[in-house]
Nucleic acid binder design. Structure first.
Lengths: 351, 351
DNA sequence: TGTTAGCACTCGGTATAATCGAGTGCTAAC
DNA sequence: GTTAGCACTCGATTATACCGAGTGCTAACA
C-alpha cells in the first residue's frame, strides 16, 4: 500500500477518535504527544505500540507530524482541520456571568465606536486570545436626517443621523457664502429627499435623480453639492482589535520568529482585514488554520470568525485570533454566540 | 575620604562630561561601558586606568553601577537623571517631513477621538516608543451651537458643535413625546443661551440662571432637562496609547521579567494614568526615570511627558513611554514640540 | 598629586562533551 | 491485528573548560 493510496482513505472510528484525542491533548499541553504517556493519560486499552502504529498511519496521511525523529506527534494543519470539522456541530456554549455582564454593556451602549470596543473586549477577555471585529461599511447606513450647521461663512458642518441614531459629521468648505436660513432650508430639503435611503443608493441613484428635478424657490444644486462633498468619500470599514496582550502571554507566540509576525499583524492591520473579508461570504463560524491563512507573514496562527448580519444582509465579520493551538472548543461557540448577539443588535437597530 | 562625603560633592567638569558620555554610550549600545573600549571609541587623551578611577568615584556617588564585578558600568537612575537634567535645555528639535504630515492630519481632524489617536500615533511613530495622551476633561469646551434631532418619539440626539467645529453628540431618552417643531424651538433656545460659554460654566452657573428666568411660549424646562441630561455626565479624562508594538521590538523589554510588567501596564492603564497625572502640575517637559515611577509594577521604564494647555489652563498631559535606556535627546524635544502643538490646537479651539 | 603601566583576579558567555530520557521503528511472538 | 522487547535517535540538561573584556590595586612616573 503506497502512501498515495493511504492518504486518500477515510479514517475509521478508532483512528478518528485517537486523532481527535491527540489534537485535544496537544492543544491543552502544547507538547508533542508521545505514545506511551498518551496511552497512560487517557487510560486506553491499547498498548503504546499500537498507538504508534496508528500514529504512523496518521502521519502518512498528513494529519500528524514529528518535529524531529525521536519526538512525539503534533497535529498538522490538516489535523487541526479534521479536529474542528468533526467537532464543529457538537460544541456547547455555556453562558458565563462575565458574558452576561459584557453582553449587557453592549446592548446598552449608544455610541457606535464604543459598541465595537465592547464587542472586541468581550471576545478577547472571554477567550483569552485577541478579539477582532470588522465594522460594517457605512454604505448600508440608512439616512434619517441631515443637518447643516454653519461654522465660518464658507465652512459648513454636515451632520448626518442614521436610522439607529449614529451621528456622522464632516466639515465641508464651499466657495459661496450662505445664510443661516438658507442652510435651514437646505437641511430640510436634504432630509426630505434622502431620508430612508442607504448611502449607497444615494450616491449611485438618488443624487442623479435629484439633479434632474426642478425645485422652485431653492438653489437645490448648491445643497446637493454640499451633500455630495460630504458623502463622496467612500468610507472603508474599520477594524477593531483588543487583547493583543493575551497573545503575548502565550509562550509559543513570543518565541523569536513568532513575535515578529505578531508585530507585523499588529502594525499592518490589512493582514487581519483580508483574513476577515475572506470569511465574509460564509455563514456560520469559519476557521482559518495556519497555512490556510495565505499571507506568509503569519504563521502558527488561527482565526475563528463569523459574519454578522443586519436583517438578512451580511454587513461585517467578527472573530477571535490566536495561536493555531487554540482552545477551539471554547472559542468556536463564543464566536458563534457573539455573532448572533451582534446580528441581533444591528438588526434591531435598523428597525 | 568616606563615601558619604564623596556622594555629596558636585561633579567637576571632566567628571560630568565623562558621565554624560558614558550614559550616552550606554543609551546607544545598551551594553555596559568598559574603560578600555570607551577611551578608544571616544579617543580621549586619558588612559583606561584614569577612566576607571573616575568611574569608581562616579559609582561611589551612585551615578553608575556594575551589573556584576567584572563588567563595565551602566547608569543608575541618578545617572540618567543627571544626564537628562544637564542636557534638557540644549535639546534641538528638527522637524521632519513625517512630523509635518502628521501635524497636518491633527490640525485638520474634526472628530475629537481621532485627534487623540493622531497625536499618539505621531508620538509613537516618530519616537519609536509608545505615545500616550491623557485627554482634557471636556469642561472647557466652548459651545457654538446646539441641535436636537429626533430619533424615536422619546429619543433625541443632542448634537453640540464647539467653536472649533468639533461635534459632540449624545443620545438622550426622555419620558415625554416631543414634536419636531418643538425640538427646533428648543434647539434655537439652547443655542442662543449656551453659545459662547464653556461646559463648566454652563453646568455650574448658566443652567441655574436659566431655570430662574421666565420664557413665554416655550417649555424651556424640558429643553433644559434635555441639555442637562446630555451634558450632565462629568466625564473622565481618557487615556490613549499607541505604539506598544514598538516596545516589543526592544530586546530588553521582552526579557522575561520585563514583558510581565509591560503587560501589566497595557492592562491596567491606571498605572500610566497615575504617572501622567503626576506630571500634570509641572510646566515644561518632565521625565520620570525608572524608580521615580513609584508603582512597583513598572521597572526599567521611563516616561517623558509634558502638560498641554487650553489658553492658560493646563488641561491634559501627553508623552512618550519607553525603556529607561531611551533616546532622550530625540524624545524630549519631540514631546516638547507636540505639547506646544496640542496646546495651540486646544487654545485656538476655544477662541 | 594626579596619571599611567602592569598584573592578578573576576565572571558572564560561549563552546564542547557527557548524560538523560521520552520517544521512535522494527521484529518476532502472541 | 496486537503487543513485548530492543536498539536507536535526538533534544534538553548538566558539567567542564576556556576566553576575553573588565576590574582593583600597587608602584612608578611627570
Amino acid at each position: 500500500m503506497d502512501s498515495a493510496t493511504i492518504s486518500e482513505r477515510l479514517l475509521d472510528d478508532r483512528e478518528s477518535s485517537i486523532l481527535r484525542a491527540i489534537v485535544y491533548e496537544y492543544i491543552s499541553t502544547g507538547k508533542p504527544v508521545g505514545s506511551r504517556s498518551f496511552v497512560q493519560k487517557y487510560s486506553l486499552n491499547l498498548s503504546p505500540a499500537t498507538i504508534r502504529n496508528i500514529m504512523y498511519d496518521l502521519e502518512q496521511m498528513d494529519y500528524l507530524m514529528q518535529p524531529h525523529t525521536s519526538a512525539g506527534r503534533i497535529p498538522t494543519d490538516k489535523g487541526y482541520r479534521f479536529y474542528v470539522n468533526t467537532l464543529l456541530d457538537s460544541y456547547e456554549f455555556k453562558k458565563s456571568d462575565e458574558i452576561e455582564v459584557r453582553e449587557d454593556t453592549i446592548r446598552k451602549e449608544l455610541q457606535m465606536d464604543k459598541v465595537f470596543i465592547a464587542i472586541t473586549k468581550m471576545l478577547s477577555s472571554v477567550s483569552h486570545y485577541a478579539g477582532v471585529i470588522l465594522t460594517p461599511r457605512p454604505d448600508y447606513t440608512v439616512v434619517k436626517r441631515v443637518d447643516l450647521i454653519p461654522l465660518e461663512s464658507n465652512e459648513i458642518i454636515f451632520v448626518l443621523v442614521t436610522r439607529h441614531g449614529v451621528v456622522i459629521n464632516k466639515k465641508v468648505t464651499i466657495s459661496a457664502t450662505i445664510t443661516q436660513n438658507q442652510l435651514y432650508d437646505y437641511s430640510r430639503y436634504l432630509t426630505n429627499e434622502l431620508c430612508g435611503f442607504q448611502l449607497l443608493e444615494i450616491r449611485d441613484v438618488i443624487f442623479n435623480k435629484l439633479r434632474d428635478e426642478k425645485v422652485s424657490g431653492l438653489n437645490k444644486d448648491l445643497a446637493l453639492d454640499i451633500a455630495e462633498l460630504a458623502l463622496g468619500g467612500n468610507e472603508e470599514s474599520e477594524l477593531y482589535i483588543d487583547g493583543i496582550e493575551n497573545l503575548l502571554r502565550i509562550p509559543e507566540m513570543v518565541e523569536e520568529n513568532r513575535l515578529k509576525s505578531l508585530l507585523n499583524i499588529i502594525e499592518e492591520k490589512n493582514i487581519l482585514r483580508e483574513m476577515l473579508e475572506k470569511t465574509m461570504e460564509n455563514d456560520g463560524v469559519g476557521i482559518l488554520i495556519g497555512s490556510e491563512i495565505t499571507s506568509s507573514k503569519v504563521s502558527g496562527c488561527s482565526m475563528v470568525s463569523t459574519s454578522y448580519k443586519k436583517g438578512n444582509i451580511r454587513v461585517g465579520v467578527l472573530g477571535v485570533f490566536g495561536p493555531t493551538r487554540m482552545d477551539y472548543e471554547k472559542v468556536v461557540p463564543l464566536v458563534d454566540y457573539t455573532g448572533r448577539l451582534v446580528s441581533d443588535f444591528f438588526t434591531k437597530m435598523t428597525k
